[in-house]
């Protein structure tokens, strides 16, 4: 989550950031992070979570 927050400023608007996390909390917490920070949660595939930067 912290690394996602740090990676976000380097991404361009519209770009997708892929997070690799094996923590079971990530499945709920990454979508919740997107909601709180106004970003778009795209999809999860196993331990990979895609987040699109929209703001």
């Amino acid at each position: 989550m912290i690394r996602l927050a740090k990676a976000m400023p380097q991404a361009e608007i519209g770009e997708i950031v892929r997070v690799l996390a094996d923590d079971p909390a990530a499945a709920g917490d990454i979508p919740a992070w997107c909601r709180m920070k106004g970003q778009e949660f795209v999809a999860a595939d196993g331990h990979a979570y895609d987040v699109r930067k929209i703001t």
Binding site: A25, A27, G28, D29, P31
Partner: peptide
């Protein structure tokens, strides 16, 4: 209800079911 705070390594199933931040 965060993971690793009680007897489990998983976050609270209640927070998960609500779709809210668990950490």
């Amino acid at each position: 209800g965060s993971s690793c705070t009680s007897s489990t390594l998983r976050p609270s199933h209640v927070l998960e079911a609500m779709g809210v931040l668990s950490h």
